[in-house]
């Protein structure tokens, strides 16, 4: 064939080079070239090599930390009213940064709103104040905290209901599964938001009610995913082996199912959180969420919207924080999914 030229002449190689090296014992064969990573190490490596996910994780960590230490971080009491200092624009110390210098457009002229309100020279509000003279920054910090608490609690309830429900439904199969799936179908036949609203009308307004209202529909998605996954896992060889060996159902669930479901659970959780935050904001926005005077991102948005035309900063800040949390959790969820599922790795 094609390479004749280099094979007509036989290379000159000394005779001693032709000693057989592994006559009988081929011991080197099973050496593996690259060190292998465990699954979790691999997941972590993939996650941390995803710049977007790392940025989102960092942003979210900062937001969570700030809300965690809200009492230490917030410059003012979020509910302390000071009516004389109402609706002040943002001001950052005495630095004269446009947009953060306490000036406001009043009848076409820029006026120092702080001076007008009679605030002392070193009073300043980084994000301004609302219509009751409450510090917006502090309210946003506390509001974010409340929104996150709602989201995390609702997600926890989701997990507590959805995961066992899905496992039982998928594992038992047959009639049990059919009935359980019918229930899921009916629950998901009503638009989520409407169920949430109905629950809010019935329950007393407050944190617990919101969590219950959100969780009452939220678990369905989780249950569906877990059921589908359990269905697949059930047929896997190692589960079959464990069953054949007579391991108890609970042991199989905790030892084999949960670890293998963990990626689905983690990823779905990352998508449940922004959903819950959205519901809370929505409820508060239409006025049936967190009751006054407490702030959540939703109530802040709702307050901000009322004054938006004249004092847009009151809406911008909570809108930006809410959007950042939503975007970051969604992107982190994507990143986690890619990290857990190497097939989508390329």
């Amino acid at each position: 064939m094609g390479v004749k030229n280099n094979m007509e002449q036989i290379p000159n190689v000394p005779k001693e080079k032709f000693k057989l090296i592994h006559d009988e014992n081929n011991n080197e064969q099973e050496k593996i070239g690259t060190p292998s990573l465990t699954y979790l190490q691999d997941v972590r490596r993939r996650l941390f090599s995803n710049k977007v996910a790392v940025v989102c994780l960092t942003l979210l960590s900062i937001i969570v930390l700030i809300s965690l230490f809200a009492p230490l971080v917030a410059p003012h009491n979020p509910n302390a009213q000071q009516v004389t200092l109402s609706n002040l624009p943002p001001k950052l110390g005495n630095l004269n940064i446009p947009g953060f210098n306490g000036y406001q457009n009043m009848g076409g002229k820029m006026v120092d709103a702080y001076k007008q309100a009679g605030a002392s020279k070193d009073t300043f509000y980084l994000l301004g104040t609302d219509y009751l003279g409450r510090d917006l920054l502090s309210r946003i910090i506390y509001g974010t905290r409340l929104s996150l608490i709602v989201a995390i609690l609702a997600t926890l309830v989701d997990l507590i209901i959805g995961v066992p429900y899905g496992i039982v439904s998928g594992w038992k199969g047959g009639r049990t599964d059919t009935i359980m799936q019918r229930i899921v179908e009916i629950v998901s036949s009503v638009p989520n938001l409407i169920v949430v609203i109905l629950m809010m009308i019935i329950l007393k307004p407050g944190l617990g009610s919101i969590v219950i209202a959100i969780a009452i529909t939220g678990w369905v998605t989780m249950a569906r995913l877990i059921r589908a996954q359990t269905f697949q896992l059930k047929e896997q060889e190692y589960i079959l082996a464990a069953r054949t060996l007579g391991e108890s159902s609970t042991k199989i669930a905790t030892k084999h199912l949960i670890p293998n479901l963990s990626s689905t659970i983690i990823i779905q959780t990352m998508f449940t959180i922004p959903n819950a935050i959205f519901f809370e904001a929505f409820l508060s926005f239409i006025g049936i969420g967190i009751p006054a005077p407490n702030a959540s991102l939703g109530t802040l948005l709702s307050d901000g919207q009322k004054a938006f035309r004249f004092l847009p900063y009151q809406m911008w800040a909570p809108a930006i924080i809410l959007s950042i949390i939503m975007i970051a959790t969604n992107l982190l969820g994507d990143g986690l999914r890619d990290a857990f599922d190497p097939q989508s790795d390329d």
């Binding site: 280099n6 094979m7 032709f18 000693k19 057989l20 090296i21 592994h22 006559d23």
Partner: peptide, 20 residues
């Protein structure tokens, strides 16, 4: 060479050419 029962020293040092 690593899987070859008949591997020789030269196999580990140099790739064999095509022999006719």
């Amino acid at each position: 060479a690593p899987r070859n029962k008949y591997a020789m020293e030269i196999d580990e040092e140099e790739q064999p050419p095509y022999f006719k």
